[in-house]
Amino acid sequence: MDIVIGITLALMTLAMCLAFVRLVKGPTLPDRVVALELFSTLIVGVIGVIAIMTDVASFLDVTIVMALMAFLASIGFARFLERGGPQDD
């Protein structure tokens, strides 16, 4: 079981590094928004794996709150992009 958790955390860390690269180098704002959403989803996954590894149930509450915050942030970014994105007034 420890080997599976270790491999899972390593792959999620690699995915977070790649998502961070896309977040920094994204050519457009929607690319960066998608990378940020992926990054937050991976953070929720890592916290979930740590909750399984440590048998601490309160970490699952943290994952639920993080997932809800990420969902609300993605809705906010989508509305921002729908209205035209950044504008020079």
Rank of each mutant, 00 (worst) to 15 (best):
V21N: 05
G6T: 09
E37A: 15
V44H: 08
R32N: 09
A35M: 02
I43G: 08
I50A: 04
A51T: 02
S40E: 06
I3S: 11
F80A: 04
I7F: 14
M69W: 04
D88H: 15
T28Y: 06
V49T: 05
M53P: 00
G26V: 04
M53S: 09
V24T: 07
F71K: 05
F77I: 05
R83L: 11
V33T: 08
R22F: 04
V24L: 15
I47T: 14
F80G: 01
M53N: 13
V62T: 13
S74M: 11
V4Q: 07
V49K: 01
T41A: 11
A57H: 05
I47E: 00
D31G: 10
R22L: 07
R32T: 12
T8Y: 12
L42D: 09
L9N: 01
L18F: 07
F39H: 03
C17W: 13
F39E: 05
M12P: 01
C17T: 09
P86G: 13
I50R: 00
L36V: 02
D89P: 14
I50S: 03
L29E: 07
A10G: 04
F39L: 14
F80D: 07
R83V: 10
F71E: 00
M1N: 08
V34M: 12
L14F: 11
G6A: 01
T54L: 11
G84E: 08
K25L: 15
I64G: 10
I3V: 10
V65T: 10
L68M: 10
M69V: 12
R22S: 03
G6W: 07
L36M: 15
V65C: 08
D2G: 14
D89C: 09
E82G: 10
I5V: 09
V44M: 13
